[in-house]
């Protein structure tokens, strides 16, 4: 993907990555395909249009930091890291990769996650260091909506607001489904926007599948000087595959051969 890509090209690009994710889940039988399809457009926007990072230069100074705090959506990250050139295709299709984002097991992962509610506090630490070092580095933390049940998320949110950490950007993949049901039934997050705003964050709600617009907006963070930014991305769990969309069960299931075929066909339609 490059700057001159039009919307048709972008859609095709995201579909190719979705196909990789589906094949990966079909091959490995792993859970969380719905979570990956939900946030993959956000990852594409970040990795192909926003983050200042370079494959092969993992420790580059002043690079942007990305933390996949919803570590269970790691198949989407693998697919994107492979497309971007951090991971080799062999490694991706080898499939013996951790089911949660794990540093040292694959190149391009800054921090291990998997237990929810860890990414934002770590992101705060990175952001404090960046401010102290007068670095241009920005820190992006992608969380799930269910993850916002964790108290540690709000401990970090309070600290970042209080300390005006404008190096820090939280992104919430708000697909409105968590492990056992709809977020509004399990533990309602609403009014989510007001919650973050009251903790001292600048909030923006967006369509989490509009790659072009996300790139345009995310590139320009912070949303406001001297404030941490949070993006509430409205998304659809299982996005792109009709029978997976907005279904709790695809938090767990992986497609069999027949369903994979159907899904790939849908994603190949013009």
């Amino acid at each position: 993907m490059n700057k001159t890509m039009n919307i048709k090209h972008i859609v095709r690009f995201t579909q190719e990555i979705r196909k990789d994710i589906l094949k990966y889940h079909a091959k490995t039988g792993r859970s969380h395909v719905g979570s990956s399809l939900s946030c993959v457009d956000i990852l594409i926007a970040l990795y192909f249009g926003v983050l200042n990072i370079t494959p092969g230069r993992a420790q580059m100074k002043q690079r942007d930091i990305f933390i996949l705090s919803k570590g269970h959506a790691v198949s989407a990250l693998y697919a994107v890291l492979t497309k971007k050139g951090f991971m080799s295709k062999d490694l991706f299709w080898h499939c013996l990769l951790p089911g949660h984002s794990t540093k040292d097991c694959v190149p391009g992962i800054e921090v291990s996650t998997g237990a929810l509610g860890h990414g934002l506090p770590i992101g705060v630490g990175y952001a404090l260091a960046a401010r102290f070092d007068k670095s241009r580095s920005r820190v992006f933390v992608l969380m799930s909506d269910g993850e916002c049940n964790e108290g540690s998320v709000w401990e970090a949110a309070m600290f970042a607001g209080h300390n005006r950490l404008d190096h820090l950007v939280a992104i919430i993949d708000y697909n409105k489904i968590q492990a056992l049901g709809r977020t509004q039934d399990v533990l309602d997050l609403e009014p989510l926007r007001d919650k973050w705003a009251s903790f001292g964050w600048e909030v923006k709600e967006m369509d989490g599948h509009d790659v072009k617009k996300m790139i345009r907006v995310l590139k320009e963070v912070p949303l406001k000087k001297n404030k941490p930014s949070v993006f509430i991305m409205h998304t659809i769990k299982g996005k792109g595959v009709s029978f997976m969309e907005d279904k709790v069960e695809w938090h767990y299931r992986s497609p069999n051969e027949e369903l994979l075929k159907t899904a790939l066909k849908e994603l190949s339609a013009p």
Binding site: P121, G125, Y126, A129, A156, H162
Partner: peptide
């Protein structure tokens, strides 16, 4: 003063922050 933080009564966050700072070389 720039290297001291009272994070409040929030130990989980404190440990995460410590990790993020240390990952940045502190």
């Amino acid at each position: 003063p720039k290297r001291f933080f009272n994070v409040g009564v929030a130990e989980q966050n404190m440990m995460g922050i410590a990790a993020g700072l240390a990952l940045s070389g502190k």
